[in-house]
Amino acid sequence: MSGYSAEVKVAETIAYKMVSLPRRIIKETQRLLQEPVPGISAVPDDSNARYFHVIVTGPDDSPFEGGLFRLELFLPEDYPMSAPKVRFVTKIYHPNIDRLGRICLDILKDKWSPALQIRTVLLSIQALLSAPNPDDPLANDVAELWKVDEAEAIRNAKEWTRRYAMDN
């Protein structure tokens, strides 16, 4: 009996959350699921529709090729007036992404516009993997190596991709 009541409660919570969700988020979620972007999957969490489990495929011809990178994306209360919070969960060797997976990307900060969407944000992140920018670094040691010895840095990035972003 107790198990049943708990199940009902969860279902109610989700329903309540769905109801209170702005049309904008519902529409975006629907579109993400119906017409997914190639190489990107974003699925809302079962218990929180503002939380997305994201998987980005490493772009071809980049040191991250063949890797599957897991990210988390959270839409804050005042989304889309404020930018979504995005973070890499899979370890990655990249000058603009630090150890904690935080991403240095202008549209996630001061260049955010309410006209941007989850889809555009994730596309930008994928583009960042293809074109690292060591002149605007977040991970200093990585950026330094990227500038001094790009070949070595790319080797490291490939090694990390193989070690952390493959086989699961």
Partner: peptide, 28 residues
């Protein structure tokens, strides 16, 4: 943009202390 979105945009910006720096909502 619709007036309601403008208003919400202003509210969010003001709550963050922005006033004269409020710009158009379009990207870039």
């Amino acid at each position: 943009f619709c007036n309601e979105c403008w208003a919400t945009h202003f509210e969010v910006q003001i709550m963050q202390g922005v006033s004269t720096g409020i710009s158009c909502m379009a990207q870039e």
